[in-house]
Amino acid sequence: SAEDNLGPLPENWEMAYTENGEVYFIDHNTKTTSWLDPRCLNKQQK
C-alpha cells in the first residue's frame, strides 16, 4: 500500500476522511489541515 512505501506519518499528524471519503491530513502541531501528505512533502524537500 502507499502507506508502506512512505512509512508512518510525522509526529502529531493524523490522517482523516471527509464526508465524501477524501483523505486529508491534520497537523496537531499547528492546528491546521492539509490535502497534501506531509510524507510526500518531506521527500520533495530533500
Rank of each mutant, 00 (worst) to 15 (best):
I26Q: 05
T32K: 02
S1H: 04
C40P: 15
P8Y: 06
D4Q: 11
W13Q: 09
C40G: 14
N29A: 13
Y17W: 14
C40F: 13
N42D: 14
L41D: 14
N42T: 12
K43R: 13
L6T: 13
E3G: 10
N42I: 14
T30I: 04
T30W: 04
E22H: 10
K43H: 14
A2F: 09
N29Y: 07
T30K: 08
E11D: 15
E11I: 11
T33E: 03
E14K: 07
K31G: 10
N5Y: 08
D4K: 10
M15N: 02
S34A: 04
Q45K: 15
E19K: 13
D37K: 03
G7T: 09
A2M: 15
N12M: 08
D4G: 12
K46R: 10
H28Y: 05
L36V: 13
N12R: 10
A2W: 09
Q44C: 09
G7F: 06
L36Y: 12
K43V: 14
S1D: 06
T33A: 04
L6C: 05
E22I: 05
S1M: 08
A16N: 06
V23H: 08
M15K: 14
Q44V: 08
C40V: 15
W35R: 04
E14P: 00
W35G: 03
L41V: 14
P8D: 06
S34E: 02
T30V: 05
Y17P: 05
E19V: 11
M15D: 04
T32H: 03
A2G: 11
N5T: 11
I26G: 00
N12F: 07
T32P: 00
A16Y: 02
Y17A: 13
E11K: 12
M15I: 09
R39Y: 01
A2R: 10
K43T: 15
R39V: 02
Q45R: 10
C40W: 10
V23C: 14
D27N: 07
M15V: 12
N42F: 12
H28F: 03
R39W: 02
W35F: 14
K46N: 11
F25G: 01
N42G: 14
F25A: 01
L9Y: 04
P8G: 07
C40L: 14
F25T: 02
D37H: 04
N42L: 13
K43C: 11
L6G: 08
N12E: 07
L9V: 04
H28I: 05
I26V: 14
F25C: 00
D27L: 00
W13A: 04
Y24I: 03
D4V: 08
N42W: 14
E11Y: 12
P38W: 00
H28N: 10
M15S: 07
T18M: 07
G21F: 07
T30M: 06
N29K: 13
N29I: 12
H28P: 03
L41S: 14
H28Q: 06
T30C: 08
P8V: 10
T33D: 01
R39G: 02
R39E: 02
R39P: 01
P10N: 02
N12Y: 07
H28L: 05
Y24L: 04
A16F: 03
E3F: 11
D27Y: 01
E14I: 04
C40T: 14
H28R: 09
N42C: 13
Q44L: 07
L41A: 14
T33W: 00
L36D: 07
E14T: 08
K46W: 04
E3L: 09
N5P: 08
N20V: 12
D4P: 08
T30E: 06
S1R: 08
N20K: 15
D37V: 02
F25Y: 15
Y17C: 11
Q45V: 12
N42V: 12
Y17V: 11
S34M: 02
P8S: 10
H28K: 09
L36W: 09
E14S: 09
N29E: 12
T32L: 10
A16P: 00
F25P: 01
S1E: 05
R39I: 01
C40Q: 14
P10D: 02
W13H: 05
R39N: 02
W35N: 03
G7Y: 07
P8F: 04
S34C: 05
Q45I: 11
V23I: 13
L41P: 12
K31S: 08
L41N: 15
L36C: 08
K46E: 09
L41H: 10
G21V: 02
E19G: 12
K46S: 09
V23W: 05
Q44G: 14
C40R: 14
E11N: 11
T30G: 06
N20G: 13
R39F: 00
Q45N: 15
L36A: 09
P10W: 01
T32Q: 07
N20S: 15
L41C: 10
V23T: 12
S34F: 00
N20D: 11
Y24G: 01
K31P: 01
P10H: 01
K43S: 14
G21M: 08
T18H: 06
S34V: 01
S34K: 02
T33M: 04
W35P: 02
L41W: 14
L6P: 10
D37M: 01
D37E: 03
R39T: 03
E14A: 08
E14V: 07
N29L: 11
Q44A: 08
K46C: 05
N29P: 01
L36M: 11
W13N: 02
A16I: 05
Y24F: 12
D27R: 00
G7N: 11
T30F: 05
E22V: 05
N29V: 11
E3S: 10
I26W: 03
N5C: 13
P8C: 06
M15F: 05
L9P: 01
D37Y: 02
H28V: 05
Y24T: 01
E3M: 04
E3C: 07
E19T: 11
Q44N: 15
E3T: 12
T30Q: 08
T18P: 02
R39A: 02
N29T: 13
G21L: 06
D27H: 08
Y17H: 13
P38Y: 00
L36N: 07
E11V: 11
C40M: 15
G21Y: 06
L9D: 02
E11F: 13
S34P: 00
I26N: 03
L9Q: 03
G7K: 08
K43G: 13
N42K: 13
W35E: 03
P38A: 01
N42M: 11
K46T: 13
Q44E: 15
P10M: 03
Y24M: 03
N12G: 15
T32G: 06
C40Y: 09
N42P: 12
G21C: 06
K43F: 12
A16D: 08
T18N: 09
T30P: 00
R39H: 01
